[in-house]
Design a binder for these strands. Structure first.
Lengths: 253, 253
DNA sequence: CGTAACCTTGAACGACTTCAACTCACGTGG
DNA sequence: CCACGTGAGTTGAAGTCGTTCAAGGTTACG
């Protein structure tokens, strides 16, 4: 189980600001405008948000947060795909969540983070100083309300993953994962039955508690049963949504 | 995998109030006084909390919340042990979390709950109307702050469980579980190395994604290696904390 | 003191992992 | 322009760990 550990990039790289165009316009047209973090702020007040935020850009595989980092800054994903991972001392890796446009990074019960956050694709983020966010919460109580809503969503998703890992077999896990990707808002283009799969088989395996071989075999089985088609390695076409749902083994018993 | 599904108890049973003794005294001496929900309220303001809350008592195996129930009421565990479960149509069950004194029940992204909440032991709860809780948050901003802190703790715990289910083998899972129980504040008596295990082997299995046989075998193995001793089925004595930690396979690689 | 539920232990089976070989896409340099 | 190398993905065969099936033991309670 050898695995190359991503090293921390230069701090300068991580927090390199993009050029600002026009005070509130940037937030107004942000793909994450309707995210739980931002939607509590009225259009008229967007400059509050904008003034407190910095734009950050990451290249694929670049690390944003390393386990143990001080939790002084929080982030909202604007575009791209990221992963939250937990690494054991012996190299075992578990992906806790994939993050897409509108998703928040920064909840921790401590002064430090207990996970790594890495870019899968090119990523744009919005960075906030944690203390400044507290001020924003005071200014915009609606923001704090939807923040709680967001926390509940994250817990619900984590519990869904717990069920998948605890009680579903390999085929069901992979089918469930495809349905999950299909529902992800803010994920890249997916018209008709096409699902964009930005992550590698290794990432999928580390998310689902499986090896890459098992993931591959499950996809091949779904393909052989004409439930999906692999347009290319990172694009899955769903041929039979109903049978994919059945393969996930959830609803309509 | 036959499993008896717990039926909903009479609503009257669930929300039967206990006699109130003295307005604020009840909260002042509550075992959950220092819980994330309540500790944001100053002693002087405890009557606000008390006036908004109802005491609820559950017998072992009694159901508090059924998947799909309207989320109008939230709860704080005062004493006893509970489980949060998710049930698939085919009977597969996954325990999402065990809850003890001070733990909160009621986070949901919807208008309804997506889990079952059941008593394991005799349980005392504090019930709040959700809308009244919102009012309390307005009155006591510190309450909302520590509520966010609590949400972060829940997410962290869920992620820890995700890692356990995704990347640890049976022995490691059971060892991790014992360490978890040991750290649970508000769990029943545990002096020296004694761990109270209020739940059945079935519950442990459904929490760890294992069968009861595998749980039993793992405990027997830990016993054979003189790492633990089973005082009785529901009491584990830790003979070698260091080797138990090693068996969990986490720290000091 | 008997019964039922829970727990433990053993043996056979099966699902996923491990190990290994091969394919494919892509990029580099001769 | 094509040979080569590399990294990701797929597929096959063997091995292992946890499940399943089965039997026996223990505990609690009427």
């Amino acid at each position: 189980m050898e695995r190359q550990i991503t090293t921390r990039p230069d701090t300068g790289l991580r927090e390199r600001l993009l050029g600002t165009i026009n005070s509130d316009v940037a937030c107004l047209h942000c793909p994450a405008r309707t995210s739980d973090l931002c939607r509590g702020v009225k259009d008229d007040d967007l400059q509050d948000l904008f003034a407190s935020s910095n734009r950050v850009r990451l290249r694929p595989e670049e690390t944003l947060i390393l386990d143990g980092d001080a939790a002084g800054t929080v982030y909202n994903v604007i575009s791209g795909a990221m992963r939250l991972t937990r690494l054991a001392a012996d190299g075992r890796r578990q992906i806790l969540a994939f993050l897409f446009s509108g998703n928040f990074i920064g909840l921790t019960p401590d002064e430090s983070y207990h996970f790594n956050a890495e870019a899968i694709t090119e990523v744009e983020l919005c960075a906030f100083d944690r203390r400044r966010l507290e001020v924003l919460f005071k200014l915009h109580p609606e923001m704090e309300r939807s923040f709680r809503h967001m926390a509940a969503k994250i817990i619900d998703q984590a519990h869904e993953l717990v069920f998948t890992l605890g009680r579903r077999n390999a085929l069901e896990r992979v089918a469930t994962f495809l349905l999950y990707l299909q529902d992800v808002e803010g994920c890249t283009t997916r018209r008709d039955g096409m699902i964009a799969v930005p992550m590698t088989r290794t990432d999928i395996g580390d998310f689902l508690g499986l090896t890459i071989e098992t993931v591959s075999r499950a996809l091949s089985k779904l393909k052989a049963e004409r439930i999906i088609r692999l347009a290319d390695v990172h694009t899955v076409e769903v041929l039979s949504p109903a049978r994919l749902r059945a393969a996930a083994g959830v609803d309509e018993a």
